[in-house]
């Protein structure tokens, strides 16, 4: 058997579009590139807010090589497995974890017609279904590590899921009613006149807090609260396995931030500034993504972390009623609009 170069080239030429999407954007290269960019951006941006420099030495311009150096360091480190862990799961989970948010990214439309997989018009449902797996696997990483800190972190992951995910999904239903579809492309198209953040402002508030919880960001990052839990569920991981967990964390952040852009901030809608609607759509998606990331980082600087019981109380006492109110209002408005049309 030998490789038929001609056939391969022909195959690539015929399917260039899909191969580009899987390999480069929004596929593997983008997701790994995002990790490097996001970590660098977070460090640099937070450093400026903390009156310090951040990475400067590796790489001439703003220490951009620092993250590559860190990644090489982590990859070449030893695998340290504590005693009495479930070795199979201890190795399997970090490999499995980044896959799920990556699958969530795949469902996001980046430009008009630029989408890897639209799930037969049920993208949102598939997204949410995948997102429910993530906290469970996250909890398992804490559970298999055989450490008191990781166990407490695992409990907290579940508490966080309870506190954040239910109001989050309730608030998303409002968007679905407005758009009348589960298709993420359809939802973006429905915002061509007005972004849903304006009619759905209550829902957006609930979504945003739930989003901070689902991505384990301040003020709801207690599963990895370093002041009491060392590094929470990730305490026992080091080297390449830790790199994978960190990757999972950031890809999860990416997936949810993209969902926020799509659901509330108009997705790829925006002035056609690059001449090509697809390119400018991608530009607008990424630009809005950057704004969302920046807001999350500013919150990280400006607020303390909630306690677990406070977060759960907030979720059930305030967020869920708020989401339900939003839902009722949405249905009413929709009903009234239908009468007048």
């Amino acid at each position: 058997m030998y490789l038929q170069i001609d056939e391969l080239i022909r195959f690539v030429e015929a399917n260039f579009d899909i191969i580009f999407k899987i390999a480069i954007f929004p596929g593997i290269a983008f997701i790994f590139g995002f990790l490097i960019f996001a970590v660098w951006y977070e460090r640099k941006f937070l450093a400026r807010l903390m009156v310090r420099m951040g990475p400067v030495h590796a790489g001439k311009v703003m220490g951009w090589l620092q993250l590559i150096a860190d990644a090489i360091k982590l990859i070449t480190k030893e695998f340290i497995v504590p005693r009495f862990t479930l070795r199979s799961l201890f190795f399997l989970l970090p490999i499995l974890l980044p896959v799920i948010p990556a699958a969530m990214v795949v469902l996001i439309p980046f430009g008009p017609g630029f989408i890897l997989y639209n799930a037969m018009g049920n993208g949102l449902i598939l997204f949410l279904a995948l997102s429910t797996i993530y906290p469970v696997l996250n909890m398992l990483t804490g559970w298999v590590s055989n450490n008191k800190f990781t166990i407490i972190g695992a409990f907290r992951t579940i508490y966080l899921d309870v506190a954040a995910e239910i109001p989050l999904i309730l608030s998303i239903i409002g968007v679905v009613i407005m758009a009348g579809t589960y298709d993420l492309v359809g939802i973006v198209e429905a915002q061509s006149n007005m972004w849903f953040i304006i009619p759905q402002i209550l829902g957006f508030i609930v979504f945003f807090i739930g989003y901070l919880g689902m991505t384990e960001r301040v003020p709801m990052d207690f599963p990895v609260a370093e002041v009491e839990l060392v590094f929470g569920i990730k305490t026992e991981y080091s080297g390449p396995l830790y790199l994978l967990l960190m990757e999972a964390d950031y890809v999860n952040w990416l997936a949810w931030s993209l969902l926020m852009v799509v659901l509330y901030l108009g997705g790829y809608n925006g002035p056609n500034i690059l001449g090509n609607p697809v390119y400018s759509g991608i530009f607008w998606t990424l630009f809005k993504l950057l704004i969302v990331l920046t807001i999350v980082l500013i919150i990280k600087i400006g607020y303390a972390r909630l306690r677990v019981d406070q977060a759960v109380r907030m979720g059930w006492k305030y967020l869920i009623p708020l989401a339900v109110i939003n839902l009722v209002l949405t249905i009413l408005i929709k009903y009234i609009l239908n009468i007048y049309q």
Partner: peptide, 12 residues
């Protein structure tokens, strides 16, 4: 920092 104020205040 004990209330998880990422080192910002401490550095200030």
């Amino acid at each position: 920092e004990s209330a998880a104020w990422n080192p910002a205040i401490f550095l200030w």
